[in-house]
Nucleic acid binder design. Structure first.
Lengths: 226, 226
DNA sequence: TCGGGTCTTCACGACTTCTCCACAATTGTT
DNA sequence: AACAATTGTGGAGAAGTCGTGAAGACCCGA
């Protein structure tokens, strides 16, 4: 049975959605604001999230960003019809679909089913990136080097995925920062160096002489394609 | 520039979409039915396809199936609100996204961009510049001369790219300085000479008699177009 | 609120590259 | 040919870049 986290501050709508989803055979978790949503998402790991963008306090887009930082859980956004810009930004942040208010519960359920099916199809394929001795299971966020599993932090993982997806391609520090944070956040470029250092400590056989994550002097870093 | 094939039988919608996509900087190809779409997709190899499911004659889902049989071109489906089953089947057939009518062109463009971005990340467009015996892989910043790989510094590489992009075209030292640094930086013009010297040492078979990077007395340098 | 992990930022040393100069070699001009 | 202008070149010092450890900020779960 699939579990859906509904993030909605308006009681009336929340109840409507909850009842309808239960009727349709889903297990429903509820949160009324951003922080609660993030907490529940982490602790309960629902199969998908229905997120109202018009939340008080924390903006719905921020919630999306933060969720996406550590998880690829499918997200459907609820928006008032006027917030078109939000929709677009939302889609770019990685929301899987959105529904505009007013909506029929029937439509919402249909979309939830569609998104879940799509997610399942994805998972079935199981996206795996291989590069040299490194193997990355993206949905599971698991990395092995020569078969040995490594424990990476969120940033280290994101960095490695970007680099390993296209071995040989060189990325600047700014590009890599973008990969780690959703959007280009103002910050010290060289924090990338620190992450690279830690990443190397974990995945390189001789971190002093990196053979996987290679620095390109004056430009940035790349995953070796030799 | 990205090329989008729009498959739509209703003239009004087709025109609306076409105009909006052109405005957004896409090149637009058009087909009004399934067979035409398949033909164009095969002959023109567009970067993505926007496909109306409600086509006369051949069903949009059949088109999807046939496309998928030979290609992995990204597909966005247009559906009328009621055809829910179609949507689901479409996604299972490998469509990348769907948009329900009525839709805003802005939304469509946003989704196209999102899908293209995803596809790009997958592929990694390798731009390659060739000039004489020199081959330059820009994203990888790799240079080969007659197949032998050369190690260039960042400045040498930047210089070479500018010159090799348009063999025969003559650049002044100032222009070449601009190429190396972002904007025209106040500095000693003749440091370009030093870089040219080092570059020649690496890529010319006889650096004393340069045949690739040629000096134009009194003006500057060019890449030989002979 | 605390404790543990992660992320950012900083400062320093080691290293690479760039700039700049002086002088030599070449080219163009008279 | 003689001269002037321009370019080639080696090399030294300046400037830039990277690796690193450590300190503090930050975040999250207990």
């Amino acid at each position: 049975m699939k579990r859906v986290l509904v993030v909605e501050d308006e009681m009336k709508i929340a109840r409507l959605v909850r009842d309808y989803l239960r009727q349709a055979g889903f297990e429903v978790l509820e949160a009324a604001d951003g922080p609660a949503a993030l907490m529940l998402a982490r602790s309960e790991r629902p199969d998908m999230i229905v997120l109202d963008l018009g939340l008080p306090g924390m903006d719905g887009l921020d919630v999306t960003r933060q969720l996406r930082a550590t998880s690829s859980v499918p997200i459907i956004m609820l928006t008032a019809r006027s917030e078109e810009t939000d929709k677009i930004v939302g889609l770019e942040l990685g929301a899987d679909d959105y529904v505009t208010k007013p909506f029929s519960p029937k439509e919402l359920v249909a979309r939830i089913r569609a998104v879940l099916r799509r997610a399942d199809a994805m998972l079935g394929g199981g996206e795996i990136v291989r590069a040299g001795p490194v193997e990355i299971d993206i949905p599971k966020r698991r990395v092995t080097v020569n078969g040995d599993e490594m424990e990476l932090t969120a940033s280290e993982f994101d960095l490695l995925v970007v680099l390993a997806r296209q071995p040989g391609r060189i990325y600047t520090r700014v590009q890599l920062l973008d990969a780690v944070h959703g959007v280009s956040f103002e910050s010290y470029e060289r924090s990338v160096d620190a992450h690279i250092k830690n990443l190397r400590r974990k995945i390189e056989s001789d971190p002093k002489r990196p053979s996987l994550v290679v620095t390109v002097y004056g430009v940035g870093y790349k995953f070796s394609d030799a």
